[in-house]
Amino acid sequence: MSGINESDQIARAAGGDRAAQAALVNRNMPIVFRVAYRMLQDRAEAEDVTQETFLRAWKALPDWQPRAKFSTWACTVALNLCRDRLRKKKPVLMDELPERVDSALRPEEALASQQGLQDIAKKIAALPERQREALTLCALEGMSNIEAAATMEVGVRALESLLARARRSLRASLNTELAEG
């Protein structure tokens, strides 16, 4: 963090300091938006969730306790908002769906296919909800395992299991499509 620690910045933002508020938004809005977009696959909805997350942040800042990084807190709020929206859209518990069976083609072969590249976002979107959250936070946003587990409010072992299943599902999904194509 450049020169000023996050707690000070949050205190200043809570007191109405526009520069501190802008810095907090500039630093954290992108990750919140990306997480929301990956979960909802809709830009407008992702923007709504991002806005709602920061609305909650503005209310929470005066009583902020530096137990977690702001980005961790914001991503947790955003994920919860996304889960609410997904639940309203699709009442089926996605995590209960069976994983696809692995096929013969390897990911490097899928990589060579333009179609495979174009479809990677769709494949991620098709992952069960919790697997998509884990993959988004760790593999795509580069969070540490501890931070991602805290954001998802699960244990590190549970996070690892979700990650492994997500990667296995993706690989199988890409390979199956290529085999069928």
């Binding site: 933002a13 809570a14 007191g15 109405g16 526009r18 508020q21 802008a22 938004v25 500039n26 809005m29 992108p30 938006f33 990306r34 977009y37 990956r38 830009r43 992702a46 923007e47 991002t50 806005q51 920061f54 609305l55 503005w58 800042l61 005066p62 390897r106 990911p107 490097e108 899928a110 990589l111 495979g116 590249l117 990677i120 976002a121 991620i124 993959l135 593999a139 795509l140 990667r167 993706l170 690989r171 890409l174």
Partner: peptide, 28 residues
């Protein structure tokens, strides 16, 4: 191979007005 595919995932940018909308609701 899977890491490389994930790294090439495309992501739309949020609209330029989003930050302004967020800051408009910030405490004065």
């Amino acid at each position: 191979a899977l890491d490389q595919m994930l790294a090439r995932e495309e992501m739309p940018a949020p609209s330029p007005e989003l930050a302004e909308k967020i800051l408009a609701n910030a405490p004065a």
